[in-house]
Nucleic acid binder design. Structure first.
Lengths: 397, 397
DNA sequence: GTGACTTTTTTCAAGATATATACTATGTGT
DNA sequence: ACACATAGTATATATCTTGAAAAAAGTCAC
């Protein structure tokens, strides 16, 4: 059962502060009066808490709105330069570091290409750390102003202070990335799987917006899913939940690079599709190849649609989401032209009741939103537990 | 992100009351002193709140424990006769109504067989209502003492006041069971899918005890799963989550009674197994047939193990649970002799990392715990939101 | 312009809560 | 009988939310 929480009277303030801040962040400029309706808090409390937030510079006033014949409402909004969040995307081909303000405007970016064999732990760690320095210097932001660094990694990220990484494609097995990065920076770190951060980006700012039960299906070379339950990314016991790609869809079927047989990824993963079409593997032009293949309408494409539809149907049957977002570069390529067929295939492989309440839509953000999503990890913590820290209190003097 | 809650200072008391009550319920007899350590609340608050609970008769003292050279500790426990919970199991062959005290001791039971074609809405409703009357009369419990009635139903139960039921096997499509029952009783109703209530029973009192991320796999004629995320049964957008049986494990494979092809249920559902073994279908002796088949070690059995293992592997990959409980009568029959083989098959079809942290165990409660689980729905609400109601306050005068 | 009116926001007193601290209760051991 | 140890309770204090009253900041009719 739900484990009830909350103890002291002080937690109340902290909670209500979080409630208001969350509303201001997601709804945008809002008056105190509206906030009472949105949150259910009394006008007095809203006034009181927003007073705190204003004093702490967390929010700012954002203009007036005339009302017919009364005192005009003062709009409040989150102070976009109260702090900054850094998002890092560690992919197979590059390390990308981006600096965002709280409005999620990109203020600076640094990118470091990785050679296919260049996934040495040292290299990646060094790239991330230099990237942090670079974006800060570039945007003229002091480290004290940074709320944290979110990192999206391939593979399985075990939660915990060390953030052990198990990434087959990198040849990493239990690399304590958190500990390694902490040697080079004192910024708060939030490390998670890249598919999950991308999923959170779609949930907050993309096609998943507003849904509380959703699955973001991500199809690239690899296949994964971010599962959203009650508005929160579900991580499972060891943060490895959502390994959709290696669920069996055709037991004993096609061999998968994971060593198993019949995995979904062996049918709908980008490289698997090209292989099945008999095309030569060329990592540089994969995207063009896939796009061309889809346009050609080859039989492989129909087959892929069937597998994809069935895979989505499995997700719907198991999770009963209100929305399924199809993303990832291959997913977008397939979906752009074939969404109706995909939906049809899903319907045929799904129970009618859950299917009828699930809308299947295309992702809106593109695959480079991994860094954005990683930064949302920082924001999430900020919205939940912000309270002027000693460091910051000093910084704002 | 997590939507923060809690507003007024009164909610604090309610929350802390729930925290303490929950601890007393699941840990058992405990002293106030221990409760401070268990809950993190101050001794003063524990004393204060337990005082309330004692005054409301929700808890009672349960003896003393000597301590070496100090005042002995007074043990507190939930008052088992503060109230009662009724659990109803509506199955394909019977309606079973059970009355429990808060210790989940069965105080009375009523059972009504259903003919295979006897799933008229009227019949079922009448059976449930007579069952409620019967168990109350039998145990000499007044309706005012009953905290609620939990009902476990086959099929999909849409949450909401009407509790619409979609049960293919019953030929029910959108039957407002909640509304219908409310015409015959004023007791609070909690209606859910029977697989989910059985899952909750295993979670609270059976093989799932203590785990926060678990999947209870239920294999009978039908195949389903109860998904536990962060200690709570996950229901999804429309309460239909966990339809594991109709996920595709062999796309385009064997025909399933749902109309699809390649569903897991078409391979590991009890009737599917017997069919595949070429045995004549005889609903009366299914269980014996299956047990005999398993003992014989026919090839079908090995095949079934393979499919079951792969199905479990899919659950592990997607949910990353710390525990998988195999239950349902067919699941138990298979598991009793074949658990090692099943684990092996699961391992072969699962990513190593999530597999290594998931323990696969057999259910401990048997399939007749559906009613028990349904009663836990009542208890769950009681633990979370108990506050001496006007009716009860009157009753205790 | 001025006063009535409207709407938003703040102030203030009241009620409720958890906690720390001091205090009481209830035992053991010598 | 008295010191000592542990469990539980009472009281004072600091916080918190809230409803009601007051203040602020406009519009509008005349």
């Amino acid at each position: 059962m739900a484990r009830p929480e909350r103890r002291t009277v002080r937690d109340l303030r902290k909670g209500n502060r979080a409630v208001l801040l969350r509303e201001l962040y997601f709804v945008g400029p809002t008056s105190r009066h509206e906030l009472t309706a949105l949150t259910g808090l009394s006008a007095a409390t809203v006034s009181n808490v927003t007073g705190d937030l204003l004093a702490d510079d967390v929010i700012v006033e954002a203009g007036l709105v005339d009302s017919d014949g009364g005192r005009p409402r003062v709009l409040l909004r989150v102070n976009p330069v109260y702090g900054y969040a850094i998002g890092v995307d560690v992919g197979e081909t590059h390390v990308q570091v981006e600096l965002f303000d709280l409005d999620m405007n990109e203020k600076a970016r640094a990118e470091y290409p990785l050679r296919p064999d260049g996934h040495d732990v040292d290299v990646v760690v060094r790239n991330i750390l230099s990237g942090i320095d670079a974006v800060l210097a570039d945007a003229g932001v002091a480290p004290e102003q940074v709320l944290g660094v979110g990192v999206g990694m391939p593979g399985i990220v075990e939660s915990g202070p060390d953030a052990l990484i198990h990434a087959q494609t990198f040849g990493w097995d239990g690399v304590p990335l958190g500990a390694l990065l902490r040697e080079g920076t004192s910024l708060p770190l939030y490390i998670d799987n890249g598919a999950k951060t991308l999923g959170q980006a779609e949930l907050w700012f993309g096609a998943g917006r507003g849904s509380r039960n959703a699955v973001i299906a991500l199809i690239g070379s690899g296949v994964g899913a971010a599962i959203i339950t009650d508005g929160v990314t579900y991580r499972g016991a060891n943060s490895s939940a959502g390994e959709w790609g290696h669920t069996k869809i055709a037991l004993g079927g096609r061999a998968c690079r994971c060593g198993g047989r019949g995995c979904l990824e062996a049918y709908i993963g980008a490289e698997a599709i090209l292989e099945r079409a008999g095309l030569p593997l060329d990592t540089a032009s994969e995207q063009a190849q896939l796009a061309e293949l889809v346009r050609s309408g080859a039989p492989v494409v129909d087959e892929t649609v069937e597998y994809l539809g069935a895979g989505l149907a499995n997700l719907i049957n198991l999770f009963n989401p209100e929305r399924i977002v199809v993303g990832g570069w291959a997913g977008l390529t397939l979906g752009q032209h074939l969404l109706t067929k995909i939906k049809k295939a899903a319907a045929e492989n799904c129970l009618t009741q859950p299917f009828s309440t699930a809308s299947i839509v295309l992702g809106r953000l593109g695959p480079d939103a991994v860094a954005l999503g990683a930064a949302t990890l920082v924001i999430e913590e900020f919205l939940l537990n912000n309270t002027a820290s000693p460091a910051r209190a000093h910084a704002t003097l």
